[in-house]
Design a protein around this nucleic acid. Sequence first.
DNA 1: TGGAATGTTCGGCT
DNA 2: AAGCCGAACATTCC
Length: 262
Amino acid sequence: MPELPEVETVYRTLEPRLTGRVIVGVRFASRLVMRDDPDRAAAQLRARKVTGMRRQGKFLIVELSGGLTMSIHLGMTGRLLWNGAEGPHTRAVFELDRGRLVYDDMRQFGRIEIGAARVWKLGPDALSLTEDEFVSRLAVRRGRIKPLLLNQTFLSGLGNIYADEALFRARVHPLSPAGKISPARARRLWRSINEVLKEAVAGGGSSISDYVDADGRKGSFQQLHRVYGRENKRCVACGARIRRIVVGQRGTHYCPRCQRSV
DNA sequence: TGGAATGTTCGGCT
DNA sequence: AAGCCGAACATTCC
């Protein structure tokens, strides 16, 4: 479900509802999603006020009174639903003084943690990194560009969909050695990343299978994907067949005619 | 039945 | 050290 645009959309729909609310009760229903002692974690959260919220990469960070922080990663199928109904995959419920927040996660790859330990390890957010910074960080890298874009310590927020979409827009082959991409093309890639992320946020994210925002609404950006999920379809730019290969164990979609700079 | 799915982490190897 | 690979995590869908 969640790459930067989807998490940003959840953030935007949730932040106005959550800020200022007081947590009156917490229930964790999964030891996978909450790895610490769930009773202890619930006790730590209870009676705290939400003082603010932010997003870094694919993490949502909830700031609480008393200096406590809770970080939430939606994994692959996590959903945060404002006043949502509980279902078979509900893994946590936060009761607030007004309203409730339901965390639903079919595959349970998501995590809710007290503190922000994993957030400190992230690289710069994909939407806050400057063009010059991106180009210089890229130049010293040895590996291939696609796995690098998915590496959250290099850049945080990009996932499989937007990595493929950004590479297509910049006409960069996913197997290109990152350090050998010319500065001009690296700048174009930075602009493509920014462009596709901002357009996706404007479209409310991509709903491939089950992503919805905190109000249960689907995104629309999947309709504008140019390569992701379009294997064997015509390239929107040149008409060639979109190809799917596996890179770093992830399905990777690209146009063999447009993306030649290996 | 096998494979794939918007993600991350860990161990092993070079 | 960096980077690559495979496996693992859990569940559903085609």
